[in-house]
């Protein structure tokens, strides 16, 4: 393949942060639940436009880390800088409004609603007309609905899920539900997309599809992506940089090659005799 230029270089930078600059900076974060230390003094950054993987054995604190980033947990120590703004405490809805969207380890969709409605739900933040306007469903409210629907249809087209547009998501196979969830997160047009095990429980073909979608989201929309994943093959293939956690501590950080050759990481994964 003739990949000779990095397309992200050419993208416009609406938020004043250039590609390659730090979008999110995690500084010395520690998180405790009572006496249990979930995360201990972790620092890493996510650069704009990259695919950043967070890996580690079970219970390493990966999902907790994501929850800290999108404001679901508030760390006892440390701080997070997102788009140059430092914050100590943030509510999940504020995080969403500031441009962070996520998917969940266990699919969290509205099972009784159609694919279309689920993804439309992801546009909530882009709907500015109030409830009464929407009741009237005319003029500005209608125009807004149409504009948002268009955006959603583009996402449906992008993720190749036209055939399930009107199917209640509860009836869909798991792999497709995961795709719908990704669609809903994309609908928020996030600056940072957090994916919690996007490929868990998928077969090889579904994993390949999902990998392609993640890469395409990244290159097409320039979305920065942080993902947790267990499949090492996938992680090494698609991510630009990897953070490795173990027992709540950071034990590795760097490109896939660097991480792969780090003794500490190998020990954590394969186990060592002490």
């Amino acid at each position: 393949m003739n990949r000779h230029v990095d397309p992200r270089q050419a993208l416009p930078q609406p938020d004043g942060i250039a590609t390659g600059e730090v979008l999110l900076d995690v500084r010395n974060v520690s998180l405790r639940f009572g006496g249990v230390k979930a995360i201990t003094d972790i620092s890493f950054d996510i650069r704009k436009g990259e695919i950043r993987a967070i890996i580690g054995p079970n219970g390493a604190g990966k999902t907790s880390m994501l929850n800290v980033i999108n404001g679901f947990y508030t760390p006892q120590e440390g701080s997070i800088v997102f788009r140059g703004k430092e914050r100590k405490k943030i509510a999940p809805y504020e995080a969403a409004a500031s441009g962070i969207a996520r998917t969940f380890q266990n699919v969290a969709l509205f099972k009784g609603m159609s694919t279309l409605d689920n993804i439309m739900a992801g546009r909530t933040l882009a709907m500015h007309r109030n409830f009464f306007w929407q009741l009237i469903y005319y003029g500005p409210a209608l125009r807004e609905e149409i504009a948002n629907r268009r955006k959603v249809e583009e996402i449906i087209d992008f993720l190749e899920i036209q055939h399930i547009r009107k199917v209640p998501v509860g009836r869909l196979p798991y792999g497709l539900q995961k795709r719908v969830e990704l669609g809903r997160a994309l609908a928020a047009e996030p600056a940072l997309l957090l994916l919690d095990e996007p490929m868990a429980g998928m077969n090889l073909e579904e994993k390949e599809d999902m990998s392609r979608f993640i890469l395409d989201v990244n290159s097409q929309f320039g979305t920065t992506i942080a993902l947790i994943e267990h499949d090492m093959g996938v992680v090494m293939d698609i991510s630009d940089r990897v953070v490795v956690l173990d027992y709540g501590r950071k034990i590795g950080d760097g490109t896939p090659e660097e991480v792969k050759s780090s003794q500490e990481v190998i020990d954590a994964y394969l186990g060592v005799s002490h």
């Binding site: 003739n2 990949r3 000779h4 990095d6 397309p7 392609r212 290159s219 097409q220």
Partner: peptide, 8 residues
């Protein structure tokens, strides 16, 4: 065009 942007 999707996915083809960075091709020669």
């Amino acid at each position: 065009a999707r996915g083809l942007r960075d091709y020669d």
